[in-house]
Nucleic acid binder design. Sequence first.
RNA 1: GCCUCCAUAGCUCAGCUGGUUAGAGCGGCGGACUGUUAAUCCGUAGGUCCAAGGUUCAAGUCCUUGUGGGGGCGCCA
Length: 508
Amino acid sequence: MHQHIKRIAQSEGQEATLKGWVANIRESKTNLFIVLRDGTGFVQCVVGLDAVGEEQFEAAKKLTLESSLALTGNVVKDDRQIGGYELQANNVHIYQIAKEYPIAKKTHGEHGVRFLADKRHLWLRSKRQWAIMRVRNEIIMGIHEFFQSRDFIQMDAPIFTGNACEGTTTLFSTDFFGEEAFLSQSGQLYGEAMAMAQGLIYTFGPTFRAEKSDTPRHLAEFWMIEPEMAFYDNEMNMDLIEQFMKHVINRVIKNCTVELEALDRDVEKLARVNQEFPRVPYTEAVKILRGEQEVNGRNAIAVQEEDLANAKKGIEEKTADIAEREVQIKAGMKKGARKFSEAKIVVLRKEIAEMEEQVRNIPKWIESAKSFEDGEDFGGSDETVLTRVFDAPVMVYNWPTKIKAFYMKEVEGDPHHVKGVDLLAPEGYGEIIGGSERETDIDVLLKKIKEHDLPMQEFEWYLDLRRFGSVPHSGFGLGLERIVRWCCDLDHLRETIPFPRRYGRLFP
RNA sequence: GCCUCCAUAGCUCAGCUGGUUAGAGCGGCGGACUGUUAAUCCGUAGGUCCAAGGUUCAAGUCCUUGUGGGGGCGCCA
C-alpha cells in the first residue's frame, strides 16, 4: 500500500512509497529534485545517484513534466520544504514518460483563457485548479453537514420537467419519449411539496439555464441547493441563511488552509462572515446605492470615486516604475537583477492593464448607481457598488413585487413589496442566495399566476399544496459555484466547476 | 445586442514617433554544476507577426473590413 502525500507526516523516519505525477523537476549532476503531486498534496522527492544506482538515475533523468511514477524512500522532516517533509528515494518506478506538456508552469494571461479552457482536462492538474476543486468539495460537505445536523432531509427534484412555467426562452428543450420536456431550472416547487411531507428539506442538484449570458457570474449548467422549511417566516429564513453561511465558510477556513494559501486568498476578509450580517430593506438599499444614505460613515458613490482616483494614481506610479527600470536595464545591470526587474515589469504591465479596465468601467458604474430608480432590479455593477460599503455579507429584503416571482408572499398592508431576500456577498461578488417566504393564500396565488401570464393548469398540483393544510413556509436557493468563486476569490465562474458549460463552451 | 481593449515562437510576453537579418523567459533538445525550490549557467532548434484589402520608397507597427478572444453592460426567480 502506498502513502498519500497528505498523510506523509505519519511516515516520518520510515520508508514509504509515493505514487503520482511530476509537477516540477530540477536536475544537477548527482541529484534530481522532483516535486511530486498525487492529488492529495505536493512533496519534493530527491533522487540521488548513489541512492538509486546509475541505471535508475539515468532513467529518471528522462522524466518530463506530468510523467507518472512511483518513488520509494525515507521520509525526512525538512522545514524548508512545502509541507515540511521530503522523500529521499532509493527506488524509482516509472509508469510513463509524458509527452511535452502544453501548459506552462507560469501563469497565463488574457489570451491564455481560451487555451486553458480548451485544455481543461489537463488544466485541472495545476495547483490552482487543484485547490479550487478541494475548496468546492469542502463547501459541499459543509452544506450537507449543516442541513443534516438540523434534521433536514435531502431530496432529489426531477431534472426533466414538463411545464415551461417561466417561459421557454430560458429553458433547454429536449425530447422525452416524443413529448417536449425541459431541463430543470429550479427544484423549488417540488421542494415545497416535499416540505409539506417532511417538514425540513433541501435539494442539491444540477440546474440549467439557456440564457445567452456571457458574464463571469453565469453558467448554463450549475449546481443549486434549495432548502424549504415548513412553518418558517422570512425572519427565520434570514436567520437560517446567516447561520448557514457562517457554518460553511468557517468550515472552509478551518479545513482548507493549504488550498486557500495556494490561491493566495485573504482569509481575514473571508472571516468577516463571523460579523452580524446587515439586513437592509430594498428601499433603504436604493438610497445607499444612490449615495443618499451612508453606512458607517461610508458613501457608496464616494467609495467608487476613491477607487477611480486610486486606479489613476496607480497607473501613473507603475508607468513611472517601468520607465525607471527600463533605463536601468539599458544602462547595464547584473544578470540576476536584470531578470528580476524584467519579471517585475511584466507584472506591472498586467496590473496597469487591470487598472485601465477599472478607469474605463467605474464611471459607468457610478452613473448607473446614481440614476438607479426605485422599483428596478439591481444590475451586476449595482450589487458591487452597494456591497462595497459593507464588510460582511448583506441581506436585502422586501423587494418590489413586480420584479420578483409569483410565489413570493406580499408584505402585510403593502402589496407593492414581497417578502423576498437576496444575500449579497462582500468584495464585489454580488448575489449568491435568493429566497423568500412563500405565498400561502390560494386566491392571491391564482391572481399572481394570471398576472404573470403563466399556464394555470400546469400549476394545479402546486395549488393543491395550498388546498390541503397550507402553512407558512420559506426557502432559498443558492448557487454552489458562486460561493466557490467568493471563497476562492476568483474572477470568473469558469474555474469553479470541473467542466464548465456556458454560452459558447460545450467542450471538453 | 451594445461599449471597450486586444491578436507576434508550443506557452507567457517585449518590439517606442513606420526603417536593414523579428527578440526574451518558460517548455523541447545537447552540455555544465554536490541540495535545488519559477534553480542557475552555456549552446541549439523553433515564426505565413490572425485573415483580406489599402496608404507608403518602406508595414509586426498606420487605415478599412472580417474572424477570434479578454473586460464591462444588457438579457437573466
